[in-house]
């Protein structure tokens, strides 16, 4: 088995309407790494994520997961290795109950019913959502939906977990518990987000993408404290690094 887990080599992608979304992206992620991907709206983050499990195929260049190069025929195999949690849990959770939703992936992997049940149980336990198994997704709170969305992917036991804005539009407490959840996984992780504090808490390494190309790649604390680089990418220093004076108002 090779040392690297995910490799992008000079990946270019052009949408059918002619928009060039990726203009030669190259990077290498090794086992056990947690990598944040940041950038302005429209910089190419989502397009990049959609290449990781073969929803999109590069116009040129190559994507390799473990030893498997991404091709039309290898997409099913790649999807076993790379689990993607999409941004909106309402799109991610499409089955009528939490149990059915978490079981969807394992059933498609062809596992026998007993193994499926075990996987569902274990995945829900790990995200702390066992009690929700028989509920329909529309009865869940935002935080619960995010947790279950993550469970749907870890039930497939992928080698690498890819997440797009895992904590968007969550209240602060739910956001904090999602961060705790992500840190409890030993998985390799890739997290795309505008929430730089979350990246700082979860990821050791950070990529900055602009106009379809990687413009910075390094240790997250260094990149995320570079105010000039962040400003060039429509980003701001994480709140924890801003050092604001304490609030002086009165509490009612």
């Amino acid at each position: 088995m090779s040392h690297h887990l995910l490799e992008f080599r000079d990946v270019r992608f052009r949408y059918p309407d002619g928009t060039e979304a990726l203009k030669g992206v190259s990077f290498l992620i090794t086992h056990g790494e947690a990598v944040g991907i940041v950038g302005a709206n429209g910089a190419g983050k989502s397009t990049l994520l959609l290449h990781m499990n073969g929803y999109l195929l590069p116009t040129s260049g190559s994507v390799t997961v473990g030893d498997v190069p991404l091709r039309k025929e290898s997409r099913q195999e790649i999807r076993r290795k790379v689990g993607v949690v999409f941004q909106n849990p309402d799109d991610q959770l499409f089955m009528p109950t939490v149990f059915d939703d978490v079981a969807f992936g394992p059933l498609n992997l062809g596992l026998p019913p007993d193994r499926v049940r075990e996987r569902v149980h274990e995945a829900l336990r790990r995200v702390g959502a066992l009690a929700l198994a028989d509920k329909p997704p529309h009865h869940l709170s935002g935080g619960e939906k995010s947790a279950v969305a993550i469970a749907t992917i870890i039930a497939m036991e992928p080698d690498i977990l890819v997440m797009d804005e895992p904590a968007a539009s969550l209240d602060p407490k739910s956001r904090r518990s999602v961060i705790g959840l992500l840190n409890s996984f030993a998985h390799s992780k890739i997290v795309a987000s505008h929430d730089l504090d979350l990246i700082l808490d979860v990821c050791a390494r950070c990529l900055v993408i602009r106009d379809g190309a990687i413009v910075a790649d390094g240790a997250a604390p260094e990149i995320l404290s570079d105010a000039t680089l962040l400003a060039e990418n429509n980003l701001e220093l994480p709140l924890t690094l801003q050092g604001r004076p304490p609030w002086k108002g009165t509490r009612r």
Binding site: L50, Y55, F104, M156
Partner: peptide
């Protein structure tokens, strides 16, 4: 557009044209 995103999420979890059920 939502249906397209859902379809993407289904593919990501190995959907091949049949919605499985085990109950």
């Amino acid at each position: 557009e939502r249906a397209e995103r859902i379809y993407g999420a289904m593919l990501a979890r190995g959907f091949r044209g049949e919605v499985p059920s085990m109950r």
